[in-house]
Computed example of a mutant assay.
Amino acid sequence: MAPETFPQMLKRHRKDRGWSQQRLADALCEESGRATVTRQDVYRWESGRRAPKFWRPYIAAVLGITLEELDRAIATSSEHVPKLEDLLPGDGPAVALPMGGGRRVGRSTADQLMARVHALRLADDVIAGQDLIRPALRELDAAVTLLRESTHTEAVGKALRVAVGELAQIAGWIASDAGQHDQAERAYLLGLSAAREAEDATLAGQLAGSLAYQWSNIGRESEGVELAEAALAEAGPHTPPRARALFWDRVAWAHTKTKDVRAAMRALGEASEALSKHGGEDEPTWLYWVDAGELQVMEARAYTELHRPLRAVPLLNDVLSRYDATHSRELALYLSWLAVAYADANEPEEAASVARRMLDISDGLGSDRTNERARVVRESLAPFRDVPEVREVLGVA
């Protein structure tokens, strides 16, 4: 019989007691004396999305098992972590050039490449940049080789360039999440060239806007504003509504980072107005994640960055109440903004509670973005280190 994994063990003990996930969360809060375990935490543990760290001794006590038994089950679980090859379709690292090189490729090859691009996007939803950067860059390199060394019709060539542009965008995003900002910039610029050759203005705006977002976050704030606005202009007025909403969001963030409150608020309003016009039009598949919730997050982030916590906290709590807990990196990022907003609102106990959850999720995640946000969270808590809850979180951190 195969060893029992931690998710299996946890679910078995919970069901043996006739408990719901919420009841188990309540029991852990009672055992630890901290009201910071939620039903979503239990769900993540039981689905294998996360393994507990701080909560291990309390889980062992509630389940009536030894810590050694618990740790063995957690170790067994680590052998069953999803791999990239489970998420990308087909065999091999990328769509390959037909044997002999220089041979003609058709539309099916472009479609196959686009399928891998979309799969890589979905992988990015659940795998952090440091674990994904090598296969992403390998995919990009193979796609560029395919484009350069094959022959094709003009229509297929355009489809291949769009695929390379989209692949360069997600590879750049992954590289940025891995902290490889120079590599990310090279990928974005390569993709921008491919998008322009394909005459895809919306994709060009997406690539330029992605680079602008990176610049805004790494100390190049003024350049970020200029490039975000240029990206919006390059995309043009006929860009699909959700794309314009996304590009306006990046303009808003760029102005937020330069502390231009009026320009940031105006851009947020434009983003909301653009999204309101979305309704069944043809649009790129990469816009699948842009919705009212994402705009709400950006609005809350802007309010947090501009030290307006009374506006930020309700927005973030609303988003987090219905957010997909399997997207660990984004969940950690959103929690980081909420922790900082609570600290700004002079609510250190609430800030510490949220920060504990954020730090637990982000620990060992492999994302430069969450590592940086963890640093910001700790800095925001530092003035309250005399508060016991804060002191404990900072000690754990």
Rank of each mutant, 00 (worst) to 15 (best):
A2M: 11
T5F: 08
F6S: 02
P7Y: 10
K11R: 15
K11P: 00
L24Q: 04
C29I: 03
C29V: 08
E31I: 06
S32P: 09
G33R: 10
G33Q: 09
R34H: 07
T38K: 09
R39C: 09
D41F: 14
V42A: 03
Y43Q: 12
A51I: 14
P57H: 03
I59Y: 00
L63M: 14
I65H: 13
A73M: 10
S77G: 06
S77R: 09
S78M: 08
E79Y: 00
E79R: 15
H80N: 05
V81K: 15
P82Y: 05
D91P: 07
D91T: 14
L97M: 12
G101S: 07
R103Y: 01
R103K: 11
R104W: 12
V105E: 05
G106T: 04
T109A: 11
T109D: 01
A110S: 08
Q112L: 13
Q112E: 15
A115L: 10
V117S: 04
H118Y: 08
D124W: 03
A128G: 07
G129A: 09
D131I: 01
P135S: 12
A136F: 05
R138G: 12
D141N: 13
A142F: 05
A143Q: 00
L147G: 00
S150W: 07
T151P: 04
V156P: 05
K158Q: 15
A163R: 11
V164Q: 04
Q169K: 05
Q169W: 15
S176A: 15
G179F: 10
H181A: 07
E185F: 13
A187W: 04
L189H: 12
A198R: 03
G205C: 06
Q206A: 11
A208M: 15
A212E: 09
G219A: 11
G219V: 13
R220A: 12
L227M: 14
A230C: 02
L232C: 01
A235T: 03
A235Q: 07
P237H: 08
H238Q: 15
A243E: 05
A243Y: 04
R244E: 06
A245D: 00
F247K: 01
W248P: 03
D249C: 13
A264Y: 04
G280D: 07
G280E: 09
L295H: 03
Q296R: 11
A302N: 07
T304A: 05
E305I: 04
E305S: 13
P309L: 05
L320A: 05
S321W: 06
D324I: 01
A325W: 14
E330C: 08
L331V: 08
Y334G: 02
L335Y: 05
W337N: 15
L338P: 04
A339E: 02
A341L: 10
A345E: 01
N346P: 04
E347I: 11
E349W: 08
S353N: 12
A355M: 02
M358I: 09
M358S: 13
M358Q: 15
D360N: 12
L365H: 09
N371R: 14
R378Q: 07
E379P: 12
L381F: 06
P383T: 08
P383K: 14
F384V: 05
R385Q: 09
D386Y: 07
V387K: 01
V390C: 06
R391S: 13
E392H: 14
V393F: 06
V393N: 02
L394G: 01
